[in-house]
Every structure is written in C-alpha cells, then in structure tokens.
Design a protein around this nucleic acid. Sequence first.
DNA 1: CACCCGTGGCG
DNA 2: TCGCCAAGGGT
Length: 352
Amino acid sequence: MTALPSAFAPRLIAWQRASGRHGLPWQGTRDPYRVWLSEIMLQQTQVSTVLGYYPRFLERFPDVAALAAAPIDDVMALWSGLGYYSRARHLHRCAQAVVAQHGGRFPRTAAELQTLPGIGASTAAAIAAFCFGERVSILDGNVRRVLSRVLAFEGDVAETAAQRALWAHAQALLPKAPEGDDMAAYTQGLMDLGATLCTRSKPACVVCPMVDLCAARMSGDPTRFPVKTRKLVRRFERWWLLLAVRADAVWLQRRPERGIWAGLYAPPVFASEDALHAALGDRAARLEPGSPVSHSLTHRELELLPQRLPLPADAAPGVPGQWVPWTEALGLGLPAPVRGLLQVLRDQPLPQ
DNA sequence: CACCCGTGGCG
DNA sequence: TCGCCAAGGGT
C-alpha cells in the first residue's frame, strides 16, 4: 500500500465546511432516526429522488417508535416508487428491533449499528460518524470514485479483493485525531466531493481541493477510474398482467415476500399468455389487450402486457387476490409501472 | 461469493 | 437511443 497523503483529511474537512452541501433536509441534525432514515433512502438512490420522499415519510413516522408501531403496508405505501423495496421492509424491522432490543434508542457504535437489519458497513459508519463522531469510514459509490482516483487505484472495484483494499484505504485516510464535528464534516465531505466535483464523466479538477495530490489527475485521465470490467447483463422477460376491473374496484394481490416487487400490491402476473388463459377459462374471451409497457430493472428487462378484463359488480376473476376500491388502490404500495397503469385504467369507462 | 433487488436521470 | 449508475445490503 502506498503512502497516503496526510493532507487529504484536513483539506476535505475545510473544503466541506466552505463549499460542501449544508441545506439538505437530513442535515443539521444528530438525531440518529433522521440520519438513519436518510441513509437508507439514499442507498443507490439519488438525492433529487429522495427529496420527494423523505419529508412525507418523516411527517407520517416522526420517530422510531411511530415507525415500529405502523403496519408494514403503511410503510410500503410511503416507499412506493422509491425502489429496492427490501429497504423498506428492513427499515420497519430495524425500527422494531431498536424499540424491542435497545429501548427505543439507536446503538452508538458502528459495530452495533451494523447488526441491525438493512444497516451494512457503510450505512453504519455514516450514522456513527454523523451522530456520534466515531472515527469510521463510509464506502459508497462516491467514495469509491474519489478514492480510486486520488490513489489511481487499478483494482477492479467489482471484485471482493478490491473492495477490501478500498476499505483499508478509506480507513487509513481518516482524520488522525478528529474533534468536535470533524467526522461529520469529513464524512459529508467525501459524499459532497464525489457528488459535486469528482463526478463520473466531467470531474471539476480545476476547483478540486485534492488536485495536487490526486494520482488520477496527474495521470492525465481521471475518468479512467474507478476501473470496472464487469458489464451488466439484463435478462428479458414478458409478463402478462391481469387487470380485472369493475366500476368501483380493481383486482390486486400482494406480491410474495421474495423476488421482484416483494411485499407490494400488483395485478396478478402470468409468465405466458397460455397461463393467463388457463387461469381464466371462459372469461379469457373477454380480455382486452392494452399497450405494452417496457420496464427495466437492474438485471431484468420487463415487457408488461396489460390485459384488461371488465367484470360486473358481483363477479370475481377466479385467481388469487382481492377487490380494492379505486379510492384506496392508488394509496397502496405499488411498483412504479403498476401505478402508471392503474392511473390510466381508473379513468377508462367500463363498456355498457 | 455471485447474484438479487427499482427507479429515474443523464451524457 | 441506451448504457451507466446513484449516500448498498441481503442471501
């Protein structure tokens, strides 16, 4: 391991205080509940997206006790559209663990925090550093990029060995003897530097506080880092969605606890047209195909084929699920594309 | 440890 | 358009 620039931490702290971000809704507090909630929402999710969710969630669940006491469906409803729904389930379980096992107060060390559901090494470090000033490092996408550039780190960041090395580098770059709010400023500085200057495509090296100690900058091509070799493979799937509707309600079922859209509500899904027709029997003749919807997930490319089935008030489609009144349907935890389909469907009049 | 899990925005 | 990826963690 090369000698690490001791100037990194003090410079980062000074830069964050002078030029970092300070006005985000989850900043300016040391309340572990608020910090934790923001960190979970921000996992793999951009700040601009979270801004639309965080205040509403906090208003509905002002503290960890309120969240722990809430039905999971209420939590999913407020998470609806944010993606990675296991985060919401773990969030709920974590709140219940904090109440049941820690007297309603978050543990104060990264090591203890990391034992809670949905809190990994990086999130634990963020909470511990922001709220309790612990000398531990985060390692998220921003930090991976910043560190791999400062160090001209040649390892493939997708590989486990490289991750381990980056964690060691991150820990070695920490402030030697942090005082007061130093760890909070340092941790925020790592994120801010990656988000505002050391960006993926056009890093603003000219105004970067690390310009003279950045190995990638000196190499002439900072965007060559972080090194990634593995390419994403997306599998294609076609899903038939049974949109059984009557004037006052739509037929929905709760998705299984595992897999895509786990724990959310959605119309019954079929892997083939044959399966859909087999489930419906004679009713299949009344299906009305809608426009296909393309929906891509991280590792899956979905083509959703909505099949509308208008039914009279006293009928049922004969597949698992329940009638949900239109007034309630859009308030449920729904996957984003399903929400879109239902909004269109609600406004379509039934025949006759 | 390789794979799984959403969504929206941007170059 | 389309590939990339963002305050990752669970299994």
